[in-house]
Write a protein that binds this DNA or RNA. Sequence first.
DNA 1: TTGATTGTTACCGG
DNA 2: TCCGGTAACAATCA
Length: 247
Amino acid sequence: MVHREKLKVSTPQGRFDEEAKKVSGRKICQVTADGKHLFYHWTRGELAHVHLGLYGKFRVHKNPAPEPRGAVRVRMIGRERSFDLNVPNRCELIDQQAYTQLRARLGEDPLHSGACADTVWDRCNKSRAPIGSLLLNQSVIAGVGNIYRTEVLFLARIHPELPANHLDRKQFDELWERTKTLMKIGVKYNQIITLGREQRDRPLSRLAASERVNIYKRDDCPRCGSGVKSWELGGRKMYACCNCQKK
DNA sequence: TTGATTGTTACCGG
DNA sequence: TCCGGTAACAATCA
C-alpha cells in the first residue's frame, strides 16, 4: 500500500465522522495485511481495519481530488494525492484486542514468509470438505479467493470435489507452492495473472484481465481443449477441466 | 432493467 | 460440539 504520508481524513457520506476525527491529521506509520484484511497503523496507536470485500476499491486522485464518486466511505488526503475508499465490506477503527482476535481466526497467509505449510496440511487431513471449498475457508488459508482456488487446482490437476483428506502430501505441496507463487505474482503486478509466459500469444499489456487466467470463466481448457465445466462449489462458481482434473 | 460478482457472516441441520 | 452448506447482504458494472 502506498499512502504513507500525512493524511487528512474525511468521510463524504458522514458514516464514519467520529472515527475519522480520531485519526485526521495523523500519519500512518505502517500498513500491514493478513489475508484479505488490511490494517492501517496510525502514529498514536489507532488501528484501522479495512476489508474490501467483493466490490471495495481504492481510487487514487491527484490533488485537488474531484467530487467523490459512488459510495466513498473514507477519503484520505495527502499532500499530492488523495485516496478514496469505495464500498469496503469493513472500514472501522479497532483496538488491540479486536486486532488480536481477528488475526487469530485467520489461517496461514501464503504471502507471509513465516507461513506454515504443515498447519494447512493438518487441516486438510482433518477435513472431508471438497478441496475446492476448503481453499476458500479463510481460517485455513487466508487470502485465497475464487479465482486463485480455481486456477491452482487446475494447475495442480486436482479435481475441486476431491475431499481434502484424500490429498496426498505431494499434491498438497504442489497446491501450496503454486498458491504462494501465483499470489506473489499478483502482488508484484497488482493483478491476478496465472497464465504462464509461454502460453501467452501477446504481451501481458495486450491481454484483457479475463485472458490472463487459464480457466476461470474460460470456455475451453488451454491444455487439452476440452470444454470447461462450471458449477457452484462452496457458494461460489467453480470452473474445472474434467479431463485434466481427475477425481 | 437484470444478473453476476476477485466476499463474509450467521444460522441451521447432520 | 463440530463441521459443512446455504442464504442474506452489499454496490457496481456490463
